[in-house]
Design a protein around this nucleic acid. Structure first.
Lengths: 129, 129
DNA sequence: CAGCATCCTTATCGATACTG
DNA sequence: CAGTATCGATAAGGATGCTG
């Protein structure tokens, strides 16, 4: 064992034209993180996502889902019997990514008191010195 | 037992007006992730960051750093002796956050083959059925 | 229900020039 | 060096109406 060749670092998000850069932007973009996070607890329909991701518009949600589906994070499943019924579910890759994202959002939520304190300090240092 | 009150989920990124939402956007925004990631290995000067975060403009970098400093992720240190010398370094909060972000970018980089394969499948299913 | 098409407004961005 | 200021182009975003 140990003879299989290791993957070299082929991709680098810090490089402008690396394909991983645009994928990073889809995932961490304004609605990407929240959409993936919302799907982490299970498949959801379009309108359910629309409600869950507070503030997103139909247009942006559709656009976000399209990019995430194309990148292989989300599967779109058409369950039409009568009327339209479409479900979005995470792929394996999507689940792994969403798990990471939820760790991040959880971290941020839990540290918001620090953030708010920093903002206060920052603003005060500049308005009433 | 169980009588101490648990921290309720006070902050929720899924809620439109929760302050954590804008902080999430600063951190995961187009340049936030890369800027924090770049600083994870140690303090850097403005122009060094400009080079490291490939593709960012002066304007966007300045804006990003300002938001991250205000939110308490980055400290700006003025080391002027002769000429200007400013260093940016992560705070404790910034380090914790950057660590999470690097796990995410690392995950994405390592799974890019999956992503590219998915993109190919997606595009082919729509151009030549 | 799950979208796409359209229009229109706003925000983002990049390039350039300038400053202490 | 480390930015700020300004401008014009482009993209993101919201609102509305329409369709299978």
């Amino acid at each position: 064992m140990g003879t299989e060749e290791r993957d070299e670092v082929e991709y680098d998000v810090f490089s402008r034209y690396c394909p991983s850069r645009s994928t990073l932007e889809h995932v961490t973009g304004r609605w990407g993180t929240l959409t993936l996070g919302a799907l982490e607890t299970g498949p959801l329909r379009f309108n359910a996502l629309l409600r869950r991701v507070d503030g997103v518009s139909q247009k942006m949600l559709a656009q976000t889902l399209l990019a995430l589906e194309r990148d292989g994070f989300v599967d779109r499943e058409n369950l039409s019997t009568a009327g339209l019924h479409v479900e979005y579910r995470l792929t394996r890759l999507g689940r792994d990514t969403a798990a990471q994202l939820l760790l991040l959002t959880g971290l941020l939520e839990s540290r918001m008191p620090e953030v708010l304190a920093a903002q206060l300090r920052y603003d005060e240092a500049r308005t009433g010195p």
